[in-house]
Design a protein around this nucleic acid. Sequence first.
DNA 1: ATTCCACAGGAATGAACGGAAC
DNA 2: GTTCCGTTCATTCCTGTGGAAT
Length: 419
Amino acid sequence: MVLFERDNDIYRDRDALREDYQPEALVGRDEELQTYQAALQPVINGEQPNNIFLYGKTGVGKTAATKYLLAHLKDDAAQYDDIDLSVIFLNCDGLTSSYQIATRLVNSLRSEANQISTTGYPLASVYEMLWEDLDDRGGSILVVLDEIDHVNDDSILYQLPRARANGDLDVAKVGLIGISNDFSFRDDLSPKVKSSLCEQEIHFPAYNAENLRAILEQRGDVAFHDGVLSDEVIPLCAAYGAKDAGDARQSIDLLMKAGDLARDEETATITEEHVRRGRRALERGRIKEGINGLTEHGHLVLYALLTLDLEGEAPLRSRDVRPRYTRFAELANRDPLVPRRMRDHLSELAMLGIVSVTERNEGRRGGTYREYALDMDVELILSAMMETVEVVGVHDSVAPYVDADANAEPPTLEDFSEV
DNA sequence: ATTCCACAGGAATGAACGGAAC
DNA sequence: GTTCCGTTCATTCCTGTGGAAT
Protein backbone atom coordinates (compact mmCIF):
# COMPACT_ATOMS: atom_id res chain seq x y z
CA MET A 1 0.00 0.00 0.00
CA VAL A 2 1.29 3.41 -0.89
CA LEU A 3 1.18 5.79 1.99
CA PHE A 4 2.92 8.76 0.47
CA GLU A 5 2.79 9.87 -3.08
CA ARG A 6 3.83 13.02 -4.83
CA ASP A 7 1.07 15.60 -5.00
CA ASN A 8 -0.17 16.38 -8.43
CA ASP A 9 0.92 19.81 -7.77
CA ILE A 10 -0.23 23.30 -8.52
CA TYR A 11 3.10 24.43 -7.10
CA ARG A 12 6.14 24.72 -9.24
CA ASP A 13 8.26 25.74 -6.27
CA ARG A 14 6.41 26.32 -3.05
CA ASP A 15 9.59 27.45 -1.31
CA ALA A 16 9.39 30.73 -3.19
CA LEU A 17 6.64 31.73 -0.80
CA ARG A 18 8.51 30.84 2.31
CA GLU A 19 9.97 33.31 4.70
CA ASP A 20 13.56 32.31 3.98
CA TYR A 21 13.26 32.62 0.23
CA GLN A 22 15.63 35.13 -1.24
CA PRO A 23 14.32 36.54 -4.50
CA GLU A 24 17.00 37.65 -6.94
CA ALA A 25 15.50 41.10 -7.14
CA LEU A 26 13.71 43.20 -4.57
CA VAL A 27 10.64 44.85 -5.97
CA GLY A 28 9.64 48.39 -5.15
CA ARG A 29 12.53 49.29 -2.84
CA ASP A 30 14.95 50.91 -5.27
CA GLU A 31 15.44 54.13 -3.42
CA GLU A 32 15.97 52.52 -0.05
CA LEU A 33 18.41 50.00 -1.46
CA GLN A 34 20.47 52.74 -2.95
CA THR A 35 20.82 54.60 0.32
CA TYR A 36 21.50 51.39 2.14
CA GLN A 37 24.20 50.38 -0.28
CA ALA A 38 25.92 53.71 0.08
CA ALA A 39 25.86 53.33 3.84
CA LEU A 40 27.62 49.97 3.57
CA GLN A 41 30.29 51.22 1.21
CA PRO A 42 32.93 51.89 3.92
CA VAL A 43 33.11 48.17 4.58
CA ILE A 44 34.48 47.54 1.11
CA ASN A 45 36.90 50.38 1.57
CA GLY A 46 38.23 48.69 4.64
CA GLU A 47 37.12 51.50 6.89
CA GLN A 48 35.29 51.42 10.17
CA PRO A 49 31.75 50.42 9.20
CA ASN A 50 28.85 52.79 9.69
CA ASN A 51 26.24 52.09 12.26
CA ILE A 52 22.95 51.93 10.46
CA PHE A 53 19.43 52.14 11.75
CA LEU A 54 16.52 50.89 9.67
CA TYR A 55 12.97 51.50 10.60
CA GLY A 56 9.58 50.79 9.11
CA LYS A 57 6.64 48.54 9.87
CA THR A 58 6.80 44.75 9.76
CA GLY A 59 7.08 43.15 6.36
CA VAL A 60 8.17 46.18 4.38
CA GLY A 61 11.43 44.67 3.23
CA LYS A 62 13.89 45.78 5.90
CA THR A 63 15.14 42.32 6.65
CA ALA A 64 14.96 41.23 3.03
CA ALA A 65 16.95 44.25 1.92
CA THR A 66 19.52 43.60 4.62
CA LYS A 67 20.01 39.96 3.71
CA TYR A 68 20.12 40.81 0.06
CA LEU A 69 22.73 43.52 0.38
CA LEU A 70 24.84 41.70 2.92
CA ALA A 71 24.98 38.62 0.73
CA HIS A 72 26.28 40.78 -2.10
CA LEU A 73 28.61 42.58 0.24
CA LYS A 74 30.12 39.33 1.39
CA ASP A 75 30.63 38.11 -2.17
CA ASP A 76 32.16 41.35 -3.25
CA ALA A 77 34.35 41.65 -0.19
CA ALA A 78 35.83 38.25 -0.95
CA GLN A 79 37.63 39.79 -3.92
CA TYR A 80 39.75 41.93 -1.68
CA ASP A 81 42.40 40.16 0.31
CA ASP A 82 42.66 42.83 2.95
CA ILE A 83 39.01 42.60 3.90
CA ASP A 84 37.87 39.95 6.29
CA LEU A 85 34.15 40.38 6.71
CA SER A 86 31.90 38.54 9.12
CA VAL A 87 28.22 39.08 9.49
CA ILE A 88 26.29 38.17 12.60
CA PHE A 89 22.58 38.20 12.14
CA LEU A 90 20.42 38.07 15.22
CA ASN A 91 16.69 38.29 15.43
CA CYS A 92 15.77 39.77 18.78
CA ASP A 93 12.21 38.53 18.74
CA GLY A 94 11.56 36.94 22.10
CA LEU A 95 14.58 38.60 23.67
CA THR A 96 13.87 41.33 26.14
CA SER A 97 17.20 42.59 27.35
CA SER A 98 20.69 43.53 26.30
CA TYR A 99 21.86 40.72 28.46
CA GLN A 100 20.09 38.14 26.36
CA ILE A 101 21.33 39.68 23.15
CA ALA A 102 24.88 39.62 24.44
CA THR A 103 24.70 35.92 25.30
CA ARG A 104 23.26 35.10 21.89
CA LEU A 105 26.01 37.06 20.20
CA VAL A 106 28.67 35.28 22.19
CA ASN A 107 27.17 31.95 21.24
CA SER A 108 27.03 32.80 17.58
CA LEU A 109 30.73 33.64 17.69
CA ARG A 110 31.60 30.41 19.42
CA SER A 111 31.78 26.84 18.28
CA GLU A 112 29.06 24.35 19.04
CA ALA A 113 31.11 22.96 21.91
CA ASN A 114 31.79 26.22 23.71
CA GLN A 115 28.31 27.63 24.03
CA ILE A 116 27.42 29.48 27.18
CA SER A 117 24.18 29.40 29.07
CA THR A 118 21.77 32.24 28.50
CA THR A 119 21.33 32.89 32.19
CA GLY A 120 23.37 33.03 35.32
CA TYR A 121 26.35 35.19 34.42
CA PRO A 122 26.79 38.74 35.58
CA LEU A 123 26.15 41.16 32.74
CA ALA A 124 29.65 42.57 32.85
CA SER A 125 31.27 39.21 32.34
CA VAL A 126 29.06 38.46 29.35
CA TYR A 127 30.28 41.69 27.78
CA GLU A 128 33.85 40.67 28.59
CA MET A 129 33.34 37.42 26.73
CA LEU A 130 31.79 39.28 23.85
CA TRP A 131 34.69 41.68 23.39
CA GLU A 132 37.16 38.84 23.62
CA ASP A 133 35.33 36.77 21.04
CA LEU A 134 34.88 39.68 18.69
CA ASP A 135 38.57 40.43 18.82
CA ASP A 136 39.39 36.78 18.21
CA ARG A 137 37.27 36.88 15.11
CA GLY A 138 38.87 40.13 14.00
CA GLY A 139 38.38 41.96 10.71
CA SER A 140 35.19 43.80 9.92
CA ILE A 141 32.19 42.49 11.75
CA LEU A 142 28.68 43.58 11.00
CA VAL A 143 26.22 42.85 13.75
CA VAL A 144 22.64 42.92 12.58
CA LEU A 145 20.04 43.16 15.30
CA ASP A 146 16.67 42.55 13.79
CA GLU A 147 13.55 43.67 15.65
CA ILE A 148 15.50 45.47 18.35
CA ASP A 149 12.35 47.23 19.45
CA HIS A 150 11.52 44.05 21.33
CA VAL A 151 14.31 44.88 23.70
CA ASN A 152 13.63 47.05 26.70
CA ASP A 153 17.05 48.42 27.49
CA ASP A 154 19.58 49.93 25.18
CA SER A 155 22.77 49.15 27.02
CA ILE A 156 24.12 46.92 24.26
CA LEU A 157 23.29 49.55 21.69
CA TYR A 158 25.50 51.85 23.61
CA GLN A 159 28.24 49.38 24.45
CA LEU A 160 28.70 47.79 21.08
CA PRO A 161 29.37 50.88 18.97
CA ARG A 162 31.59 52.32 21.69
CA ALA A 163 33.58 49.22 22.49
CA ARG A 164 36.46 50.22 20.30
CA ALA A 165 36.61 53.72 21.70
CA ASN A 166 36.54 52.34 25.20
CA GLY A 167 39.50 50.12 24.51
CA ASP A 168 37.56 46.90 24.83
CA LEU A 169 38.29 46.01 21.23
CA ASP A 170 41.66 46.20 19.55
CA VAL A 171 41.47 44.57 16.15
CA ALA A 172 37.83 44.04 15.32
CA LYS A 173 35.97 46.72 13.42
CA VAL A 174 32.37 46.41 14.46
CA GLY A 175 29.41 47.96 12.69
CA LEU A 176 25.95 47.74 14.13
CA ILE A 177 22.84 47.51 12.00
CA GLY A 178 19.66 47.97 13.96
CA ILE A 179 16.31 47.08 12.49
CA SER A 180 13.17 48.27 14.19
CA ASN A 181 9.50 47.86 13.44
CA ASP A 182 8.60 50.66 15.66
CA PHE A 183 9.47 54.21 14.85
CA SER A 184 8.91 55.45 18.37
CA PHE A 185 11.68 53.13 19.51
CA ARG A 186 14.13 55.55 17.99
CA ASP A 187 12.76 58.43 20.00
CA ASP A 188 13.02 56.51 23.22
CA LEU A 189 16.70 55.82 22.83
CA SER A 190 18.99 57.75 25.09
CA PRO A 191 20.70 60.62 23.28
CA LYS A 192 24.13 59.04 23.37
CA VAL A 193 22.83 55.90 21.69
CA LYS A 194 20.88 57.88 19.17
CA SER A 195 23.87 59.83 18.03
CA SER A 196 26.03 56.78 17.49
CA LEU A 197 23.53 54.23 16.25
CA CYS A 198 21.51 56.54 14.10
CA GLU A 199 24.33 58.10 12.15
CA GLN A 200 22.77 56.51 9.09
CA GLU A 201 19.03 56.12 9.09
CA ILE A 202 16.92 54.56 6.42
CA HIS A 203 13.19 54.65 6.48
CA PHE A 204 11.17 51.92 4.80
CA PRO A 205 7.64 53.07 4.06
CA ALA A 206 4.76 50.58 3.93
CA TYR A 207 3.95 48.95 0.64
CA ASN A 208 0.86 50.10 -1.16
CA ALA A 209 -1.44 47.68 -2.96
CA GLU A 210 0.44 48.33 -6.19
CA ASN A 211 3.79 47.33 -4.66
CA LEU A 212 2.28 44.29 -3.07
CA ARG A 213 0.77 43.16 -6.31
CA ALA A 214 4.14 43.40 -8.01
CA ILE A 215 5.77 41.41 -5.24
CA LEU A 216 3.10 38.76 -5.23
CA GLU A 217 3.32 38.42 -8.98
CA GLN A 218 7.06 38.00 -8.80
CA ARG A 219 6.75 35.26 -6.20
CA GLY A 220 3.67 33.72 -7.73
CA ASP A 221 5.40 33.30 -11.07
CA VAL A 222 8.07 31.20 -9.45
CA ALA A 223 5.86 29.41 -6.98
CA PHE A 224 2.94 28.28 -9.11
CA HIS A 225 2.52 26.65 -12.46
CA ASP A 226 1.03 28.80 -15.17
CA GLY A 227 -2.71 29.18 -15.08
CA VAL A 228 -3.11 28.08 -11.48
CA LEU A 229 -3.89 31.51 -10.11
CA SER A 230 -7.21 32.93 -11.11
CA ASP A 231 -7.12 36.60 -11.93
CA GLU A 232 -8.59 37.91 -8.76
CA VAL A 233 -6.32 36.06 -6.34
CA ILE A 234 -3.27 38.28 -6.35
CA PRO A 235 -5.16 41.58 -6.31
CA LEU A 236 -7.19 40.27 -3.41
CA CYS A 237 -4.16 39.20 -1.40
CA ALA A 238 -2.57 42.56 -2.16
CA ALA A 239 -5.68 44.43 -1.13
CA TYR A 240 -5.89 42.60 2.18
CA GLY A 241 -2.23 43.23 2.76
CA ALA A 242 -2.45 46.92 1.98
CA LYS A 243 -5.48 47.32 4.15
CA ASP A 244 -3.93 45.61 7.14
CA ALA A 245 -0.45 47.03 7.29
CA GLY A 246 1.24 47.15 3.90
CA ASP A 247 2.95 43.98 4.98
CA ALA A 248 4.48 41.83 2.27
CA ARG A 249 5.15 38.88 4.55
CA GLN A 250 1.53 38.69 5.50
CA SER A 251 0.33 38.93 1.92
CA ILE A 252 2.69 36.20 0.78
CA ASP A 253 1.63 33.97 3.66
CA LEU A 254 -1.93 34.50 2.60
CA LEU A 255 -1.13 33.52 -0.94
CA MET A 256 0.61 30.40 0.28
CA LYS A 257 -2.22 29.48 2.58
CA ALA A 258 -4.69 29.84 -0.25
CA GLY A 259 -2.43 27.66 -2.37
CA ASP A 260 -2.23 25.02 0.34
CA LEU A 261 -5.97 24.93 0.70
CA ALA A 262 -6.38 24.51 -3.03
CA ARG A 263 -3.80 21.77 -3.08
CA ASP A 264 -5.46 19.90 -0.24
CA GLU A 265 -8.66 19.94 -2.18
CA GLU A 266 -6.84 18.92 -5.33
CA THR A 267 -8.38 21.68 -7.33
CA ALA A 268 -6.57 22.91 -10.39
CA THR A 269 -6.84 26.59 -9.65
CA ILE A 270 -6.74 28.89 -6.67
CA THR A 271 -9.82 31.01 -6.28
CA GLU A 272 -11.00 34.00 -4.35
CA GLU A 273 -12.73 31.61 -2.01
CA HIS A 274 -9.45 29.97 -1.09
CA VAL A 275 -8.00 33.35 -0.26
CA ARG A 276 -10.86 34.21 2.03
CA ARG A 277 -10.68 30.92 3.85
CA GLY A 278 -6.92 31.22 4.02
CA ARG A 279 -7.24 34.57 5.66
CA ARG A 280 -9.48 33.12 8.30
CA ALA A 281 -7.13 30.25 8.96
CA LEU A 282 -4.17 32.58 9.34
CA GLU A 283 -6.06 34.80 11.68
CA ARG A 284 -6.90 31.80 13.77
CA GLY A 285 -3.26 30.85 13.96
CA ARG A 286 -2.34 34.32 15.04
CA ILE A 287 -4.89 34.33 17.83
CA LYS A 288 -3.83 30.95 19.00
CA GLU A 289 -0.25 32.03 19.21
CA GLY A 290 -1.19 35.15 21.10
CA ILE A 291 -3.35 33.28 23.55
CA ASN A 292 -0.65 30.73 24.08
CA GLY A 293 1.71 33.37 25.38
CA LEU A 294 -0.68 34.70 27.98
CA THR A 295 -0.53 34.14 31.70
CA GLU A 296 -3.14 32.13 33.46
CA HIS A 297 -4.66 35.36 34.67
CA GLY A 298 -4.56 36.65 31.13
CA HIS A 299 -6.73 33.70 30.15
CA LEU A 300 -9.11 34.35 32.99
CA VAL A 301 -9.47 37.98 32.00
CA LEU A 302 -10.13 36.95 28.43
CA TYR A 303 -12.71 34.43 29.57
CA ALA A 304 -14.42 37.09 31.62
CA LEU A 305 -14.59 39.43 28.67
CA LEU A 306 -15.66 36.64 26.39
CA THR A 307 -18.60 35.51 28.47
CA LEU A 308 -19.74 39.05 29.07
CA ASP A 309 -19.52 39.72 25.38
CA LEU A 310 -21.64 36.66 24.70
CA GLU A 311 -24.21 38.05 27.05
CA GLY A 312 -24.28 41.18 24.96
CA GLU A 313 -22.67 43.36 27.61
CA ALA A 314 -19.81 44.64 25.49
CA PRO A 315 -18.31 47.15 25.22
CA LEU A 316 -17.10 47.13 28.79
CA ARG A 317 -14.83 49.21 30.91
CA SER A 318 -12.34 47.48 33.14
CA ARG A 319 -14.42 47.92 36.27
CA ASP A 320 -17.27 46.02 34.62
CA VAL A 321 -15.03 43.16 33.65
CA ARG A 322 -13.65 42.86 37.11
CA PRO A 323 -16.47 41.12 38.99
CA ARG A 324 -16.70 38.41 36.37
CA TYR A 325 -12.97 38.03 36.38
CA THR A 326 -12.75 37.65 40.14
CA ARG A 327 -15.44 35.01 39.99
CA PHE A 328 -13.52 33.03 37.42
CA ALA A 329 -10.34 33.44 39.40
CA GLU A 330 -11.99 31.97 42.45
CA LEU A 331 -13.36 29.12 40.39
CA ALA A 332 -9.89 28.37 39.16
CA ASN A 333 -8.70 28.55 42.74
CA ARG A 334 -6.48 31.54 42.18
CA ASP A 335 -6.24 34.80 44.06
CA PRO A 336 -7.67 37.51 41.83
CA LEU A 337 -5.21 40.14 40.77
CA VAL A 338 -5.35 43.70 41.83
CA PRO A 339 -7.22 46.03 39.40
CA ARG A 340 -4.10 47.71 38.15
CA ARG A 341 -2.69 44.40 37.08
CA MET A 342 -5.93 43.33 35.50
CA ARG A 343 -5.82 46.41 33.34
CA ASP A 344 -2.39 45.36 32.17
CA HIS A 345 -3.85 42.09 31.01
CA LEU A 346 -6.62 43.87 29.18
CA SER A 347 -4.07 46.07 27.47
CA GLU A 348 -2.13 43.01 26.48
CA LEU A 349 -5.19 41.49 24.90
CA ALA A 350 -5.66 44.71 23.01
CA MET A 351 -2.09 44.63 21.78
CA LEU A 352 -2.62 41.14 20.44
CA GLY A 353 -5.58 42.40 18.46
CA ILE A 354 -7.94 40.03 20.21
CA VAL A 355 -9.74 42.84 21.89
CA SER A 356 -10.54 46.30 20.60
CA VAL A 357 -10.25 49.43 22.67
CA THR A 358 -11.93 52.77 22.44
CA GLU A 359 -10.91 55.56 24.71
CA ARG A 360 -13.78 57.53 26.10
CA ASN A 361 -13.99 60.67 28.09
CA GLU A 362 -17.10 61.81 29.87
CA GLY A 363 -15.45 64.81 31.36
CA ARG A 364 -15.96 65.92 34.87
CA ARG A 365 -18.80 63.53 35.48
CA GLY A 366 -17.34 60.41 33.95
CA GLY A 367 -13.62 60.93 33.56
CA THR A 368 -11.48 59.04 31.08
CA TYR A 369 -11.73 55.33 30.64
CA ARG A 370 -11.35 52.68 27.99
CA GLU A 371 -13.98 50.41 26.60
CA TYR A 372 -13.09 46.89 25.60
CA ALA A 373 -14.88 44.58 23.22
CA LEU A 374 -13.94 41.40 21.44
CA ASP A 375 -12.43 42.20 18.10
CA MET A 376 -12.51 38.67 16.77
CA ASP A 377 -14.97 35.99 16.02
CA VAL A 378 -16.00 34.57 19.38
CA GLU A 379 -15.92 31.05 18.09
CA LEU A 380 -12.41 31.55 16.82
CA ILE A 381 -11.17 32.69 20.19
CA LEU A 382 -13.03 29.99 22.04
CA SER A 383 -11.66 27.16 19.98
CA ALA A 384 -8.17 28.58 20.30
CA MET A 385 -8.61 28.76 24.05
CA MET A 386 -9.89 25.24 24.33
CA GLU A 387 -6.93 23.92 22.42
CA THR A 388 -4.14 25.83 24.01
CA VAL A 389 -5.16 26.63 27.51
CA GLU A 390 -5.55 24.59 30.59
CA VAL A 391 -7.30 26.42 33.34
CA VAL A 392 -8.62 24.12 35.95
CA GLY A 393 -12.37 24.32 36.26
CA VAL A 394 -12.87 27.27 34.03
CA HIS A 395 -13.23 25.51 30.70
CA ASP A 396 -16.19 23.72 32.09
CA SER A 397 -17.53 26.95 33.45
CA VAL A 398 -17.38 28.52 30.07
CA ALA A 399 -18.75 25.56 28.17
CA PRO A 400 -22.37 26.41 29.00
CA TYR A 401 -21.93 29.73 27.26
CA VAL A 402 -20.74 28.07 24.12
CA ASP A 403 -23.74 25.87 23.57
CA ALA A 404 -26.38 28.05 25.12
CA ASP A 405 -28.31 30.25 22.78
CA ALA A 406 -28.08 33.96 23.23
CA ASN A 407 -31.12 34.31 25.45
CA ALA A 408 -30.31 31.53 27.85
CA GLU A 409 -29.68 32.39 31.44
CA PRO A 410 -26.01 32.49 32.25
CA PRO A 411 -24.99 29.56 34.41
CA THR A 412 -25.00 30.10 38.11
CA LEU A 413 -22.21 29.50 40.53
CA GLU A 414 -23.66 26.12 41.43
CA ASP A 415 -23.34 25.02 37.86
CA PHE A 416 -19.67 25.70 38.11
CA SER A 417 -18.89 24.15 41.40
CA GLU A 418 -18.80 20.55 40.23
CA VAL A 419 -15.21 20.54 39.16
C1' DA B 1 -10.64 79.79 32.93
C1' DT B 2 -10.82 76.55 36.28
C1' DT B 3 -12.23 72.37 38.41
C1' DC B 4 -12.45 67.61 38.75
C1' DC B 5 -13.85 62.78 37.44
C1' DA B 6 -12.22 58.12 36.64
C1' DC B 7 -9.38 56.03 34.92
C1' DA B 8 -4.51 55.27 32.20
C1' DG B 9 -0.22 54.01 32.83
C1' DG B 10 4.70 55.05 34.91
C1' DA B 11 7.87 53.88 38.77
C1' DA B 12 9.49 51.57 42.65
C1' DT B 13 9.63 47.43 44.88
C1' DG B 14 9.38 42.56 45.94
C1' DA B 15 8.70 37.42 45.67
C1' DA B 16 9.70 33.34 43.15
C1' DC B 17 12.52 31.04 40.07
C1' DG B 18 16.24 29.08 37.05
C1' DG B 19 20.98 28.83 36.23
C1' DA B 20 26.11 29.70 37.18
C1' DA B 21 29.83 30.07 40.27
C1' DC B 22 31.93 29.29 44.55
C1' DG C 1 24.73 23.50 49.73
C1' DT C 2 24.97 28.95 49.37
C1' DT C 3 25.39 33.18 46.96
C1' DC C 4 24.84 35.95 43.03
C1' DC C 5 22.45 37.47 38.89
C1' DG C 6 18.71 38.43 35.63
C1' DT C 7 13.77 37.65 34.45
C1' DT C 8 8.93 37.50 35.14
C1' DC C 9 4.81 38.43 37.31
C1' DA C 10 2.83 40.76 40.65
C1' DT C 11 1.55 44.80 44.23
C1' DT C 12 1.58 49.54 45.81
C1' DC C 13 1.75 54.18 45.16
C1' DC C 14 1.70 57.64 42.26
C1' DT C 15 1.32 61.36 38.49
C1' DG C 16 -0.93 62.47 34.12
C1' DT C 17 -4.88 63.60 31.23
C1' DG C 18 -9.10 65.14 28.12
C1' DG C 19 -13.11 67.32 28.27
C1' DA C 20 -17.87 68.15 30.60
C1' DA C 21 -19.29 70.82 34.38
C1' DT C 22 -18.78 74.81 36.98
